[in-house]
Design a protein around this nucleic acid. Structure first.
Lengths: 358, 358
DNA sequence: CTGAAAGCGCTTACAG
DNA sequence: CTGAAAGCGCTTACAG
């Protein structure tokens, strides 16, 4: 097992200085085409791979991007990570992940340790960490560039990438209305998350646009978890004037509604239409599969990496760029996924059941 | 923004040589208690953080552990990553993740690029990558230590961590038998994965131990995906002699069985008991929630990190260590999760429905 | 277009 | 128990 080739070996073999090899490696302009080719051949022959730690120490760049997340089971983390890791590879970077407790007492220190040790070239923050002042401060102190994914508000200091929650919620409510529903309930998300507010806004806007009065009895508070979805559904479905459709602010809660409806002997979508938000894997694996909104998490993550490494994205994704303060804010397109949990409203729902066939 | 303190700053302030500071940082023995304390105080005051790239370049250790995975949505990847990232932090390491296509033509090169650039101190491989000869070869060529999570077979060369699939499948089948079921079907997992074979073995062993003949009509091939679960269920449930229970080799397929049963108008668990394997998040979010087996993915990942960084695990987890060849093989305990998708067998299932109450 | 020198911030042998 | 020297493998200014 010979030792891996170094830049010196390549330079010697190619008959040039190490500086020239360095220029070829970094694709810098100003190298004779012949020289470049010559060097590249030697690099290939020697199987030369520049060593990150040396590049990092000398050049001040680590070629590392950090991804900070809180709840690993959160639906969007997987998508974000997938998009980020693939884009990093394309750009010659690597993704370092760190699972953090949003309310750990030593959160700032944990962030500082990672940043000071690794000196990543950039950080990607997911909710709720991207809205945590302590985390943001620790990152600012270390002067690490970061991009926020779906932050509560557009921060003038940090670039961000998000989708349009208001619009998406409006679309999904419009869908329900177009199916003839008038009594459409909503289960709101966690109070402290802005996504909850935005989705409620979209719901309210859609009702208003169609002249449907907003009935407070049809608005129930949840917190984005499955159990609150179940509980909220029991509340809603026990009213004398039952809603004919429920828009849950995320899939987790929508699954809870589905379970509650089934336990109460209601047929979905015959007796009740259900819509969610997120398009989690489970949403397509229940019966009936859920109508929901797909957040383009992977595209958002790719855009975040691009913002960090300064690559020009291949666009074409219909991105809207909002500028607030000095930082860039990208808004990516979502997608309405219409499946079988929503159907036309029936005024007097029959309790009859039809055994569906394959 | 002053530049971060270096080892030289600390040495100067503390009135010692940088070598002594280095010794304190690395917790090496042979430093006067007073000297150590003195240095530690200065480090704290200057907020000193050793720079990884410098340590790595000089010392030949990167303090990086790589995690290679294929399908990001696979239930176990999340658990593995969570356990690995937490244990890494405790040990002063960081986790670099890489999503790879198991059948990408340039797989070996992708692995080589990562390893040559980062020189991670170790790699954790998850199925099916841990059984991919090309990946293993690339890693061997680079002399990177690696630990396999749930590999197909105990490799004499690489240490591994896994659970006892045979035993777990046997337990879950025993549970079904103890509930009075005699016609218990199994949906097998993907043909090329050893977990499929092992779970089938456990199923067969349990039947045999109870003198129940193995009925070939009750054995259906699946491939661990949701659609094959649905399809297999339709096959099984359309037989004139329907099974009263189905053991799906993973939750994904069990969810498929549940959907199929519901579409056929069967009540679960009244008409049919269903058991899965994995304890995915969705398993607890459907109605009825699935009886399944929890794989201790996070513990397995922690054990893998320990194997790599040479830390002594706090044991107590009832680990069994098997030695084959020169490498260590750990077998961790699983857990049977009994929920509502399984119930006592009823000979003549009634088609009557009772609307369950809260 | 190309190169010689210095230096990034640590750790590894060696000494004492 | 402690330290002075060399060196890890690159990149950054500077020259030419």
């Amino acid at each position: 097992m010979p030792k891996p080739a170094t830049i010196i070996d390549v330079a010697r073999e190619a008959g040039v200085s190490i500086k020239t090899v360095s220029r070829v490696v970094n694709r810098e302009a100003g190298v004779h085409a012949e020289t470049r080719e010559q060097v590249e051949q030697v690099m290939a022959r020697l199987n030369y791979r520049p060593k990150q730690s040396a590049r990092s120490l000398a050049g001040g760049r680590s070629f590392l991007i950090g991804l900070l997340y809180y709840d690993p089971s959160a639906a969007f983390v997987g998508g974000v990570q997938q998009g980020a890791t693939l884009r990093c590879r394309e750009a010659g970077y690597h993704l370092v992940v760190e699972s953090l407790h949003n309310d750990a007492p030593d959160l700032p220190m944990q962030v500082d340790r990672m940043v000071s040790a690794l000196r990543p070239d950039g950080m990607i923050l997911t909710p709720p960490l991207c809205d945590n002042p302590q985390v943001l401060k620790a990152l600012r102190d270390s002067q690490t560039p970061c991009v926020l994914i779906s932050p509560a508000a557009d921060d003038p200091e940090h670039p961000s990438v998000r989708m349009d929650d208001v619009h998406a919620a409006e679309e999904i409510t419009n869908l329900l209305i177009s199916l003839g529903h008038q009594r459409i309930a909503i289960i709101k998300g966690a109070k402290d998350q802005v996504a909850s507010k935005r989705r409620y806004q979209g719901y309210a806007a859609a009702l208003k646009a169609h002249g449907i009065p907003l009935d407070k009895d049809l608005v129930v508070q949840g917190d984005f978890t499955f159990p609150t979805g179940v509980e909220a559904a029991y509340q809603l479905l026990s009213r004398r004037q039952r809603p004919t459709a429920v828009f849950a602010s995320n899939d987790e809660m929508a699954l809870g509604v589905l379970v509650a409806a089934q336990r109460l002997g209601l047929e979905v979508p015959g007796d009740l239409s259900i819509a969610g938000f997120d398009d989690t894997p489970a949403a397509a694996r229940v019966w009936p599969p859920l109508t929901t909104v797909r957040q383009p998490m992977d595209d958002m993550a790719r855009a975040a990496v691009d913002l960090l490494v300064g690559t020009r994205a291949s666009d074409g994704g219909g991105q809207v760029v909002v500028t607030s303060g000095s930082a860039q804010h990208k808004v990516l397109k979502h997608e309405l996924i219409v499946r079988d949990s929503t159907a036309a409203s029936v005024d007097k729902p029959t309790r009859a059941r039809k055994a569906a066939s394959a």
